[in-house]
């Protein structure tokens, strides 16, 4: 089947089985490899992207659910070379070690801040609970999201 999906503002027509995961379409058909495979069952958040502004696990989201909707991936966050405040927060807080979880962490944090622009640390931890960092960078990630929320307030 053919689907029309809007990814990072650009329209794409993809030919695929409707049950194919959005993650596979992004990575293998559109070459957007920033979203990562981590577990394939929605448990680790490495594949998190936004659909109409809400964070979803693209590894368990069939592409048909994204048809005609706005998908935002990590590649679509920076504007004209200027990093999104959350991306900048991750750099400023040095909130990454191997970096493999980072795109999913950033997307989850973007969705979290859209709902709650000034979360407490406890709310950040709760909101990010579905994302795994095996390097154990959690305290710095909380700091990064906190910095992003403060940066956005200025």
């Amino acid at each position: 089947m053919a689907f029309e999906i809007l990814v990072n503002g650009a329209s794409h027509r993809v030919e695929t089985d409707p049950e194919t995961s959005l993650l596979s379409v992004l990575r293998n058909q559109l070459g957007l490899t920033g979203s990562k495979y981590g577990c394939g069952e929605g448990q680790c958040g490495a594949c998190a992207v936004l659909i109409d502004g809400r964070a979803v696990r693209s590894c368990i989201t069939p592409v048909k659910h994204a048809a005609g909707r706005h998908v935002t991936t990590i590649e679509g966050l920076a504007r004209n070379g200027k990093l999104h405040p959350v991306q900048q927060g991750f750099l400023d807080a040095d909130a990454l070690q191997c970096g493999y979880c980072t795109p999913g962490m950033v997307m989850s944090a973007v969705a979290l801040l859209a709902k709650d622009p000034h979360p407490t640390d406890a709310a950040i931890r709760r909101g990010m609970e579905g994302n795994v960092c095996r390097c154990g960078t959690y305290p710095r990630i909380v700091a990064a999201v906190r910095m992003a929320s403060k940066g956005a307030a200025r």
Binding site: L32, T33, D94, L96, Y100, P103
Partner: peptide, 29 residues
């Protein structure tokens, strides 16, 4: 000194290519 990750920007933008992201021409799965 606390020097930040040298190529951090490539990681926070999703630009860094891990092995699982590589796709040379003609590649099969």
């Amino acid at each position: 000194q606390s020097i930040p990750k040298v190529d951090g920007r490539a990681f926070v933008t999703g630009a860094h290519q891990y092995v699982s992201d590589l796709h040379p021409a003609g590649m099969l799965f």
